[in-house]
């Protein structure tokens, strides 16, 4: 499990947020939400080792991050960034890159790597795309290719930065279904999401970041009743009970 303790992080010596404590619990879908620039992406990047930690600490299964090599943390947490390169390589090759942390120089794939990648492709519903080139794929298909790569990394924690951006509604829901399925396998799934209604309906817990701090952390029910969304975003979140549970909307 990844535990974040009193974390501050930011760019060029300027903290975007500070004093954030949060656990990425196995078996749970955690959504990070908040206004633009509140540091949701920075938080994930700090955990993925992309941005430096300014103060506080991140524990991977109880071990502080500085004591682990980048490859060791890459075996514990996978990260799907918002911005990605689109090289002209096959989807299978892309997924194989997910095995990188497990290979030592000069990086020869073992049979088990191919097996894990095949399973990851299957799991991400990308088997049919395996020999297609990434630039030829639609947004939703690319998402599946990247997911296959993250799954091939075989980590307990999977972090996704706005995985639903640029996707149509069907694909957005498919991403959330995958997140749910991964959580039910015992993984911790952490997603940065702008769509609050989708988050309220599908997340186990929400962490609302605002004004450089953690404004609220809790189950959707707690978040709703606390009124923190209304305060932070300056909107009014409402809900209505339907046959398929609560539906959220903005009045």
């Amino acid at each position: 499990m990844i535990e974040i303790r009193q974390l501050s992080a930011g760019y060029n010596g300027q903290a975007v947020f500070s004093g954030v404590s949060l656990d990425f619990r196995p078996g749970e879908v955690l959504v990070l939400a908040g206004p633009n620039g509140c540091g949701k992406s920075t938080l994930l990047k700090a955990v993925a080792g992309i941005e430096p930690v300014m103060s506080g600490e991140i524990l991977f299964d109880g071990v502080p991050m500085p004591r682990l090599s980048p490859r060791e943390t890459a075996k514990k947490a996978a990260y799907m960034p918002q911005e990605r390169g689109v090289p002209s390589i096959s989807v299978r090759r892309m997924a194989l890159h997910g095995r990188f942390p497990y290979l030592s120089y000069p990086r020869r794939y073992r049979t088990e790597d191919y097996d894990i990648v095949d399973a990851a492709l299957e799991r991400a519903d990308a088997s049919g795309l395996a020999s297609r080139l990434v630039p030829e794929l639609s947004g939703g298909q690319r998402q599946r290719a990247y997911l296959a790569m993250a799954l091939a990394q075989d980590t307990q924690t999977v972090m996704m930065d706005e995985p639903t951006a640029f996707l149509d509604i069907r694909h957005q829901l498919a991403v959330m279904d995958t997140a749910r399925a991964l959580a039910s396998e015992g993984r911790a799934v952490v997603i940065v999401l702008h769509d609050l209604c989708l988050a309220m309906k599908r997340a186990d817990r929400l962490a609302i970041l605002a004004d450089g701090a953690l404004a609220a952390l809790g189950a959707p029910e707690e978040i709703f009743t606390s009124g923190v969304v209304d305060r932070v975003f300056g909107v009014s979140l409402r809900r209505v009970e339907t046959d398929s549970g609560w539906q959220y909307y903005f009045a």
């Binding site: 992309i50 980048p70 943390t73 990260y79 990605r84 390169g85 997910g98």
Partner: peptide, 11 residues
């Protein structure tokens, strides 16, 4: 080529 962020997140 996959981008700096992806490269770093893969260790």
């Amino acid at each position: 080529m996959l981008g700096r962020d992806t490269a770093r997140s893969l260790g």
